[in-house]
């Protein structure tokens, strides 16, 4: 994949339940991914209501894929997979 779009939910629920730990994720991206990953902190994506509060914090990847109980490590692994390891 050419480019990965990551939307981190910064609604207060997700923030309290772990998104606070992902605020500095941009600094953790390997240099070779530069220009290929677009990270955005979003206001509440309302996934905690549609899905399940226990699944927070939520991250949306490429507009369609939803990651529940997101952590920096999980997110970095998934971005790596999407970039096909060929970064």
């Amino acid at each position: 994949m050419e480019k990965v779009k990551v939307e981190i939910c910064c609604g207060t629920a997700c923030y309290l339940l772990g998104a606070a730990n992902m605020m500095d994720i941009e600094d953790k991206l390997p240099a070779e991914w530069s220009g290929k990953v677009e990270i955005e902190a979003k206001p509440c994506l309302e996934l905690c209501e549609r899905e399940n509060l226990g699944g927070a914090p939520y991250v949306r990847i490429n507009d369609t894929e939803v990651m529940a109980q997101a952590t920096p490590d999980k997110l970095l692994t998934r971005i790596g997979e999407l970039l096909g390891g060929a970064a």
Partner: peptide, 17 residues
């Protein structure tokens, strides 16, 4: 702060917004 956060989360208020 946790309890305040819960009120804000429950009432869908994002500080940043």
């Amino acid at each position: 702060f946790e309890e305040l956060g819960a009120i804000l989360a429950g009432r869908k208020i994002d500080v940043i917004a």
